[in-house]
């Protein structure tokens, strides 16, 4: 297959970037988008041009390293799935494909299509954990978790941390990401003790990183490769209100 690519090239964080045109000819329809970029990079290299920098690792949609905006959509048009699960046969012959990084202030561009998502790590560091010292855990079956709660918790915990939610959101909000972690832990009895502190710290960290607020647009849910439901954002809001109420009432 043949395509016209428009790829974001940017030397480093400080330089100005722009879209550069490339002709991608003779691309096997069974290749993934990333493999198409591999092929292009091999050709660029042999032509003496610098290959396109882009991030990927597991290439099976679970590690969350992919961070491409394809034709204006985070992870491209084939939802649900990360950009590594996008295959060229999903595009039309001759189509123009625009490939950019996730674009938001909190994920600065490192080079070309590579971004810095350490803001997400810092949100988790603010409290996205249960403080269970190694060795102190009680016998596993002494903590019963109703199946329904465990299933809901798992649905939230499935987040792959790619940041597509924030990239797709017109407000650049990371609320789906934060909500997923807060809900995962707040749904489990093990997470109860730190429930108040966790949500308050994580929301503050999220704000401090410059992410916006949710105005119920649901682009996040639409692009999420792990199909995290936006209803968890409602849960996050409830958790946050509950926590601030508890705090203000002195509990």
């Amino acid at each position: 297959m043949n395509f016209r690519l428009r790829v974001w090239r940017q030397k480093d964080r400080k330089s100005r970037g722009r879209l550069i045109n490339y002709d991608a000819t003779d691309i096997p329809p069974q290749a993934s988008l990333l493999e198409m970029l591999d092929i292009m990079n091999e050709r660029l290299l042999l032509r003496g041009e610098e290959p396109i920098a882009f991030d990927s690792d597991c290439r099976e949609g679970i590690c969350g390293t992919c961070s491409l905006t394809v034709n204006g959509e985070a992870h491209g048009p084939d939802h649900p799935g990360a950009a590594c699960e996008l295959y060229m046969r999903k595009f039309k012959e001759g189509e123009t494909i625009v490939i950019e990084p996730f674009r938001l202030k909190s994920f600065p561009i490192v080079k070309d299509l590579v971004i810095d998502r350490s803001a997400l790590d810092r949100i988790v560091q603010a409290g996205g954990f249960i403080s269970a010292r190694t060795g102190s855990a009680p016998e596993a079956n002494s903590i019963l978790v109703p199946k329904h709660d465990a299933d809901v918790s798992m649905e939230a915990a499935a987040c792959i941390g790619c940041g597509a939610c924030a990239a797709a959101c017109p407000n650049a909000s990371a609320m789906l990401f934060t909500a997923a972690k807060v809900s995962h832990l707040a749904t489990l009895p093990q997470g109860e003790t730190e429930r108040v502190r966790r949500v308050v710290s994580m929301v503050h960290a999220m704000d401090a990183e410059g992410f916006g607020n949710c105005t119920n647009i649901y682009e996040c849910e639409a692009v999420c490769p792990a199909e995290i439901s936006a209803s968890f954002i409602a849960k996050l809001n409830r958790e946050y209100s509950r926590a601030t109420l508890k705090r203000s009432s002195g509990e």
């Binding site: 954990f129 249960i130 269970a132 190694t134 060795g135 102190s136 855990a137 009680p138 016998e139 596993a140 903590i143 978790v145 109703p146 199946k147 465990a150 299933d151 918790s153 798992m154 915990a157 995962h184 832990l185 489990l188 093990q190 997470g191």
Partner: peptide, 14 residues
């Protein structure tokens, strides 16, 4: 298993 459950790993349940 004890440690992971305490950390909040959502293992499958009956």
């Amino acid at each position: 298993i004890d440690q992971c459950v305490a950390q909040g790993v959502p293992f499958a349940r009956e």
